[in-house]
Design a protein around this nucleic acid. Structure first.
Lengths: 180, 180
DNA sequence: ACGAACCACCACAGCAAAGTAGCGGTTTAT
DNA sequence: ATAAACCGCTACTTTGCTGTGGTGGTTCGT
């Protein structure tokens, strides 16, 4: 791929993530315009609209995978790993504020997404085994809460710096908002 | 309004809320079909698509208002009021699983929504004054967390019975998921 | 029972967005 | 420097949804 094409691809993916987050039905034309690119250019790199959405999700997925890798979920002390994980996920959500719910993708993205879910699930099980988090929650709830709270913080409080947001997220996830 | 018309209106609002939750761009035709009603019938009660969306939001808003009223936010002990509030909001979210983010309504719904926010905000301030919840959180975060966790539980764990879900939601909101 | 209100089944125009095509000009890699 | 790759532009067809009109049949209120 040529350098200018790569530049344009980046711009399209970034603009796409931003616009899709606030309106899942944005037109390809709007995304192209926001990326400072012709509509035809988008169609040159993605055969159709759905492929573009897949591309955006794949970009986010890769950012998340990088965050998981950096957190060393299997080896690091659970507290440390959790904080790193949360910080990475917040950063990824800031760059690609799209949610995974609008994924009707026919490619293998769901599998990669499920794999991530499994990795984090295993980590949360370890956290439960080591006595950090409750073990009596319904299946998948710890995972849902982790991503829910993190997405909430990332989306609704954009003024919070990444590290501070991660501190708060971990604090709230583990200890709630009770006083004292 | 005649009885059959009211029945159809209910069906349309309910189907609309359900379908809109999983795809904000559903066609009026799809909603009508899901409600077991002709497309023309929808257009008889709502002049256009946007009015239909407003109707759905208004229905949810009224369910939420009823929940707020029943919780006696200003007088009841904070713990009791919080639990009642959460239970009511979960029930409302189950009936109308649409989020308030897709509200481009030009009618006065935003005002009513803001009023609700203010009522709950005042209650949360009282909860902080009485020492139940932390007072050092960024502005609006307690509110965002309350609605975020409640929506999460209502949406992702539909098998949980309402009361049990409310127990869990309050527990997690106040004390987090730390073990012990 | 009976009139009024409501409904379902076409059918139609208008529009916005998806996707496609070709061309002349520009950027990139070697 | 040059050829290949890429881009922007304009224009076109197709598709799916919106909103409207009419007609005959059905259901509700009294």
């Amino acid at each position: 791929m040529r350098a200018d094409a790569a530049r344009n691809l980046d711009a399209v993916l970034q603009a796409g993530a931003r616009l899709l987050a606030e309106d899942p039905g944005v037109s390809v034309a709007a995304i192209a315009t926001a990326a400072g690119v012709d509509r035809r250019t988008v169609y040159r790199q993605f055969p159709n609209r759905e492929a573009l959405l897949c591309g955006v999700f794949e970009a986010k997925l890769e950012a998340l995978e990088a965050a998981l890798d950096q957190s060393r979920l299997a080896e690091a002390p659970v507290g440390v790993a959790l904080h790193k994980l949360v910080e990475g996920v917040i950063a990824a959500n800031r760059s690609y504020p799209v949610g995974p719910e609008q994924l009707t993708c026919s490619s293998g993205l769901s599998e990669r997404y499920a794999e991530q879910r499994a990795r984090v699930g295993a980590f949360l099980r370890r956290a439960a085994d080591e006595g950090l988090v409750r073990a009596d929650l319904p299946d998948g709830m710890a995972y849902a809460l982790l991503y829910g709270i993190v997405s909430l913080l990332a989306r609704e409080f954009p003024d919070l710096e990444c590290g501070r947001a991660a501190d708060l997220a971990v604090e709230i996830l583990l200890d709630g908002i009770r006083s004292g």
